[in-house]
Amino acid sequence: MSTVEESIDVDVPVRVVYDQWATFEDFPQFMEGVEEVRQLDDRHAHWRTKIAGLSREFDTEIVERVPEERVAWRTTGESVKHTGTVDFEPLGAARTRVRMTMAFQPTGLAEKAADKLGMLDRQVRGDLRRFKRFIEDRGTGSGPRPASGGG
């Protein structure tokens, strides 16, 4: 299993950053290769991706949700294996550090080669940069504030 950890500081309050991140349907607007995320219920989402020409569909389950602090997930099923966390750290009233950690099990020759070339690292770093531009340009989250408590 390969692991990548990246972080970025955004000039937006933690509440707004968390609320935006918890709006999974907006991910295609800043995550390269994510074509669609459909929220199925409070804990489950269905993803459609196309990365390096490889199309995938898979489901995820939110395994931990701490408002304004953390979102953690894992894939369900057999087709794609990954887990991840996003931690939100306030750096003052209007600044937040976003730290993403993902563990991914590459399958097949193409994914294993991409992993060895560091493509996941670059993908996560790029997605965080695009998220920073997205949230700073917008200034406010687009979705409703999720209910507090675990996922």
Rank of each mutant, 00 (worst) to 15 (best):
L117C: 10
L128G: 00
R74C: 03
A114V: 15
P146M: 09
R56V: 07
D87Y: 11
H82V: 13
E57T: 07
M102Y: 05
R99K: 08
G108A: 11
D59C: 13
S148W: 12
V71Y: 00
G151A: 13
R129H: 12
R43P: 08
D9W: 15
H46T: 07
A52Q: 04
R138I: 03
T96W: 04
G139S: 15
L40E: 07
V98C: 02
Q29E: 09
A103V: 10
G149C: 13
G84V: 00
T83Q: 08
H44Y: 13
S55L: 13
T101S: 12
Q123E: 08
L117I: 11
G84D: 01
R43C: 03
T83A: 07
I62D: 00
P28R: 12
G33A: 08
L109R: 11
V14E: 01
F104C: 03
T96D: 04
G141T: 02
G33K: 12
E32K: 15
D127Y: 07
M102L: 07
Q105P: 06
G150Y: 09
Q39E: 13
S7R: 11
R48C: 14
P67E: 12
I62P: 00
V37A: 11
L117N: 09
D11K: 05
D41R: 05
F24N: 01
L109G: 13
F58Q: 03
L117E: 03
F58D: 02
R74H: 03
V10K: 00
R56F: 04
S2I: 09
A22R: 02
A93H: 12
R15W: 15
E6Q: 15
H82P: 01
F30S: 01
T76N: 15
R43D: 06
R130D: 01
T75A: 06
V124D: 02
E89P: 03
G33R: 10
P13L: 09
R74A: 10
T101L: 10
R122M: 10
S79T: 14
T101P: 13
R99P: 02
E64R: 15
D26F: 02
D127N: 05
Q29I: 06
A113G: 09
A94G: 04
D137K: 09
L91G: 12
D87E: 14
A45F: 04
I8A: 06
Q29V: 05
I51N: 02
F131G: 00
I62H: 01
Q123T: 15
D26V: 05
V86K: 00
M119H: 11
S79R: 11
A93I: 03
E64Q: 14
L117P: 01
R97P: 00
Q123P: 02
T23G: 08
I8F: 06
F104R: 03
A52W: 12
D59N: 04
W21S: 03
F104L: 13
G84F: 00
W21I: 05
R125F: 01
R99A: 06
S148E: 04
F131K: 00
G149E: 15
G151N: 08
T83F: 12
F30W: 14
V10E: 05
E68N: 03
D115P: 08
E78T: 06
H44V: 14
D59T: 14
D87R: 06
R130Y: 02
V17I: 13
V4Q: 05
S7D: 11
L128C: 10
F27S: 06
E69P: 02
G92D: 10
V16W: 01
F58M: 02
P13C: 06
E64Y: 09
